[in-house]
Amino acid sequence: MFSRFKLDPFLLLLFATLAFATFLPAKGDAAIGFDWLTNAGIVLLFFLHGAKLSRSAVVAGLGAWHLHLMVLATTFVIFPLLGLGITTALGPWLNPAIVAGFLFLCIVPSTVQSSIAMTAMAHGNVSAAVCSASLSNVLGIVFTPVLAAILLNGGSADSSFFLDALVKIGGTLLLPFIVGHLMRPVIGSFIDRHKTLVGRTDRGVILLVVYTAFSAAVVEGLWSRFDIGDLATILLLDAVLLAIVLMLSRLMARLTRQPHEDEAVLVFCGSKKSLASGVPIAGAMFEPAQVGVMVLPLMLYHQMQLIVCAALAQAYARRYAATLENKRETLHA
């Protein structure tokens, strides 16, 4: 069933966690304990991200610097501008909490695993995808709080907000990431042999962050501020955003005459937003009661991008196969 409808089982776990937090939120001492546990989980998560990053794969893709610049421009320039334009145009009719969450969605880095998987499925440049997605995540540790300081504070940079967020992210995300990467020569083989265990740890930490965040948000009256109409609005905004970014990334690839392999990297790395990085970054930047509201648009966008990009990757694969067949026929002729 999951395969046929392209449903991500992890998304079902996320919504089950959200429901659990709605009916049995952590309160009092339990909330404090979950908060400490969540911070420890985030540190572990980014330590593992650093340890997983293969220097050889990154070095292999570094030559396509022009491609990486276009991916980064899509992730950290085009996305925020689109988010700002959409929310400015529709602001009077939108719940302010939706606006904040939607803008946060627009400033988080690209995914790693699914971007690489979709690029491979489309017969794209996998080494460049590894480099682009990894670079996006590393730079996102700094770019996301910078953009948050600008976009989430009325269009003007708030130095105190930025410095506070940078200190939190530096200690909780960047430092563990660097330590993990420096330890890769020691633990890299273990990490590579136990990718399934590492993946489960990733998802377990995200579920923990989501439960802690939504528990705090529910206690603060989350569902008195959101209704079905708000959720439908978020889905519509996410769909419009994804459609525009996919169109612009393909147009950028065609205008710059990228080959099929590099076009796939630009489309699939440029259009993605990372739940694995976005949720911990939100957890490090905002108060627990705010995090649930901030990541809701990202959670819905995550599933939408998987469905749409999986279908698009298959279309790219068919086009690639047809191109190869035409070349064979031309050579035989």
Score class of each variant (00 low, 15 high):
104 F>D: 00
2 F>C: 00
327 K>Q: 14
57 A>Q: 15
82 L>D: 03
2 F>K: 03
213 A>V: 05
219 V>H: 13
194 H>G: 10
51 A>S: 03
197 L>V: 10
176 P>T: 05
292 G>N: 10
279 V>K: 01
254 R>T: 11
74 T>V: 08
13 L>P: 01
40 A>H: 09
206 I>K: 07
78 I>H: 00
251 L>K: 14
285 M>C: 02
164 D>N: 13
299 M>Q: 08
86 I>N: 01
67 L>D: 00
146 V>K: 06
16 A>K: 02
321 A>Q: 10
55 R>T: 12
88 T>C: 07
124 G>L: 07
96 P>C: 03
122 A>P: 09
219 V>E: 15
263 E>C: 12
22 T>L: 13
227 D>Y: 09
101 G>S: 07
276 A>I: 09
295 V>K: 06
330 T>H: 15
156 S>I: 02
293 V>S: 08
170 G>V: 01
279 V>F: 04
325 E>T: 00
139 L>P: 00
307 I>E: 02
269 C>Q: 12
227 D>L: 06
91 G>E: 09
251 L>S: 14
14 L>F: 02
225 R>Q: 07
323 T>F: 12
188 G>H: 04
12 L>C: 11
77 V>N: 00
155 G>S: 01
330 T>K: 15
37 L>Y: 09
202 D>T: 01
26 A>D: 14
121 M>L: 15
285 M>Q: 03
172 T>Y: 00
131 C>E: 11
216 A>L: 04
136 S>P: 05
64 A>K: 10
125 N>H: 13
246 L>V: 04
295 V>C: 09
221 G>P: 03
83 G>W: 02
308 V>H: 14
35 D>S: 15
242 L>E: 03
66 H>R: 15
245 V>L: 12
192 D>P: 04
289 A>P: 11
116 I>Q: 06
303 Q>Y: 08
84 L>W: 15
317 A>H: 10
117 A>D: 01
144 T>N: 12
89 A>L: 12
108 V>I: 00
47 F>N: 05
54 S>E: 08
136 S>M: 07
151 L>N: 01
147 L>D: 00
99 V>W: 06
167 V>P: 10
94 L>Y: 06
42 I>W: 06
236 L>P: 08
313 A>R: 02
99 V>P: 10
50 G>C: 02
157 A>V: 08
158 D>I: 03
215 S>A: 04
304 M>T: 14
96 P>F: 01
35 D>A: 14
230 D>E: 10
324 L>S: 13
221 G>V: 05
292 G>W: 10
121 M>K: 12
189 S>T: 06
300 L>W: 05
102 F>S: 00
166 L>F: 13
49 H>R: 08
224 S>R: 15
25 P>D: 08
181 H>D: 03
48 L>V: 08
139 L>G: 09
21 A>H: 03
171 G>S: 00
